[in-house]
């Protein structure tokens, strides 16, 4: 028969003895293990748009549609160019017919439902173009809301969509404040710009960057201090779109104006 004193002693011994090996256990985060084996991600892709240089030719939109097989006539696009015309009465007139694919040759502004608004040259205070594309946010709301994890961020910072896994609920489209997502007209799953991931991972530039004759679009690696794009981002006054949503966009703009949506 064991007495109380020995029982307590032996129990404490047992607990102490068990605790020692238990302390050796640690819950591993698989990503942490991966990071231990190799260097931290060599690349973090970022984009730089110089709106001062954009002339609204639309070659980037054209090149993107062809490269990424978005049906040419479909009214959706991975990248687009917006035209801003600010008149003397302080109003801003914005349009992007066909995503700016065919350039902005006419002076009139598209106002939807097939209607246009004529704007006289002498009424214009300022006018400029703003190219748009996926911001590859560091805190992407689209990745957060996907119910099946079909959209995800890669280690080098690009948000991708798995066409074989997407259920087509559209929650990511709703969750994106920038309106970059849409349903692919052929595959019927969520679709968006991915910085031409198939090209940049092979050392090429994106289709839109290659198509831009004015150097308004540039892609770079923010983890490389010697990268000319990184030099501009860290030394010059750059802005981002819709900072208030806390998405931490990775597309940087030069020469943005307060009218830009």
């Amino acid at each position: 028969m064991i007495d109380r004193r020995t029982f307590c002693k032996k129990s404490m011994l047992l607990v102490g003895g068990l605790a020692l090996p238990l302390a050796a256990f640690e819950l591993f985060d698989p990503r942490k293990l991966l990071a231990d084996k190799s260097d931290p991600a060599k690349e973090r892709w970022v984009f730089l748009v110089d709106t001062e240089k954009c002339v609204g030719c639309g070659y980037c939109v054209h090149a993107c549609k062809v490269e990424n097989e978005i049906p040419y006539e479909a009214n959706v696009t991975r990248t687009w160019v917006e035209r801003y015309v600010v008149t003397k009465d302080g109003k801003s007139h914005i349009d992007s017919p066909k995503g700016g694919r065919d350039g902005f040759t006419a002076g009139r502004i598209e106002i939807g439902e097939g209607k246009h608004e004529e704007i006289r040259g002498e009424d214009v205070n300022k006018a400029f173009f703003v190219p748009k594309l996926c911001n590859q946010c560091e805190n992407p709301p689209c990745v957060q809301v996907c119910p099946v994890g079909a959209t995800y961020a890669t280690a080098d910072g690009v948000v991708l969509v798995d066409r074989k896994w997407c259920i087509g609920c559209g929650y990511c489209i709703m969750g994106c404040p920038y309106g970059v997502r849409f349903f692919h007209p052929v595959y019927h799953v969520a679709e968006k710009c991915n910085f031409c991931y198939h090209r940049i991972t092979k050392g090429m530039k994106t289709a839109c960057v290659d198509a831009c004759a004015f150097d308004a679009r540039r892609i770079g690696n923010i983890n490389d201090p010697a990268d000319p794009v990184t030099r501009i981002i860290v030394t010059e006054r750059v802005s981002i779109l819709k900072e208030e949503y806390g998405t931490k966009p990775q597309v940087y703009y030069l020469g943005l104006s307060k009218e830009v949506k």
Partner: peptide, 23 residues
């Protein structure tokens, strides 16, 4: 035709990819 285009009518400036996706 793109999903959503059939029942959406746009007025003034709407991003090119925006449609009424949840109906």
């Amino acid at each position: 035709m793109v999903h959503g285009e059939l029942w959406t009518v746009k007025e003034y400036f709407v991003y090119p990819n925006e449609y009424i996706y949840w109906t």
